[in-house]
Computed example of a mutant assay.
Amino acid sequence: METGIPRHGSPEAAKSRIHRGTNQSGMRDHNERLVLSLVRQHGSLAKSDIARMTGLSAQTVSVIMRELEEDNLLVRQAPLRGKIGQPSIPMALNPDGAYFIGLKIGRRSAELVLIDFLGNVRSMLQHSYRYPAPRETVEFVTSGMKTMRGELTPAQDKRIAGLGIAMPFELWSWADT
């Protein structure tokens, strides 16, 4: 029997769950991530658009957006005028809201990259070698991170949120190859 409601486990149900918020207490982190994801996907969004897309109340979205703005994760854009009512104020991700460091360890080289909250590369270093020896790689990462962090202001440096590392499976067994 067709009810118009997506069946649990169906692609439609999964899609409808992806952009749904909740007003229950204890779900603030989930809702904040949801709002940040939507703003990232769309470039910028007004509070009313986020409320409509998530099903969250306008008040809940307003509180979340205000806190994300106070945390410098979101920035206000120019107001959109010309429609009925007050102008809407789109919010966008703040490029300086967070920074991330990525390390790729490959067979012949290692790359260290610093990216901002929008995914823009702020700094990149590369080191070539014959074989990825642990000591040499750690020295490259240590000196590279010092160099990259030295290019940031103290406030930006405090916003480094993490380090991601990628390397091929069982890289250590490649010596025989």
Rank of each mutant, 00 (worst) to 15 (best):
S143Q: 15
V121L: 01
Y99K: 06
A14W: 04
A98G: 06
Q41G: 14
R28K: 11
S143H: 15
G85W: 02
P134R: 03
L114H: 10
F169E: 14
S25F: 10
S88K: 12
W172Q: 12
Q77K: 14
R130S: 14
E139N: 09
E69W: 03
D176T: 03
L36Q: 05
Q126C: 13
L80R: 07
M65N: 03
N72R: 13
S109Y: 12
M53G: 07
W174D: 09
Y99R: 06
T22F: 00
V141D: 06
L152G: 02
S109D: 13
V35F: 03
Q86K: 13
E12N: 00
N23E: 15
R130L: 05
P90S: 06
D71A: 15
S37I: 07
Q24T: 07
S123I: 04
Q126F: 01
M91L: 12
S123N: 10
A175C: 00
S48N: 08
W172N: 11
R107N: 11
M124D: 00
N31F: 13
D116C: 12
G43T: 02
S48D: 09
D157Q: 13
A92E: 05
S143C: 12
M167I: 04
G144K: 10
L103M: 02
K83P: 00
P90T: 02
K15S: 11
G43Q: 05
G55A: 01
G55P: 04
K146D: 15
E12I: 04
L36W: 01
R66C: 02
M27L: 09
S123H: 13
D176G: 00
G26P: 01
S10G: 02
F100R: 02
M145A: 08
L93P: 01
T142G: 14
K158G: 06
M53Y: 00
M1D: 07
A175Q: 00
L163S: 05
I64E: 07
L103K: 06
G102C: 11
I160H: 03
K83F: 01
E151Q: 15
S128F: 09
H42E: 05
T137C: 15
Y129R: 11
I165M: 05
P168F: 06
G21I: 01
V75Y: 01
R149L: 10
D29W: 12
M148A: 08
A78K: 15
H127F: 15
S128C: 11
K47F: 02
V63A: 08
R122C: 13
H19A: 11
R122E: 15
